[in-house]
């Protein structure tokens, strides 16, 4: 299974670390963890999905977040009716990350993406 390369991952890591430190300083651990959650749940899975397409990195960053804030909670909401809400958050995250890696396989199989 080919994992798409994420551009500038080192630089993004540094920026994220600065952002987390910043929020720790102004809002404490609660703020820092909240920001981590915002990035992790709303952006990461969908960035990985969009990384399979011919988009610029800034497009991927902003589009992944705006798609994520709609699609991520939609699945969490419906799962949360039947099971623990907290559990449904992590299950949803796993589902979307798995989709992000199986999606290119689907695209290639249907001749929708070139290697």
């Amino acid at each position: 299974m080919k994992i798409p390369r994420i551009e500038n991952i080192g630089f993004m890591g540094i920026i994220l670390a600065i952002i987390l430190i910043f929020f720790y300083m102004i809002l404490g651990a609660s703020g820092m963890i909240a920001i981590l959650g915002i990035v992790l749940f709303f952006a990461v899975p969908f960035y990985l999905m969009l990384n399979n397409f011919e988009l610029e990195q800034d497009e991927k960053l902003i589009l992944s977040f705006l798609i994520g804030v709609g699609l991520f909670p939609s699945l969490v909401y419906w799962l949360g009716i039947f099971i623990s809400f907290k559990a449904s958050i992590f299950i949803t995250f796993a589902i979307y990350v798995i989709l992000a890696y199986t999606f290119p396989k689907f695209l290639r199989k249907n001749h929708l993406k070139s290697d």
Binding site: G37, V69, P73, S74, G80
Partner: peptide
């Protein structure tokens, strides 16, 4: 529609407070 407020709930469940 649920997504917006569920976003709040997700972060509130993940982070203390």
């Amino acid at each position: 529609p649920p997504p917006y407020h569920t976003d709040f709930a997700i972060i509130s469940a993940f982070s203390p407070g």
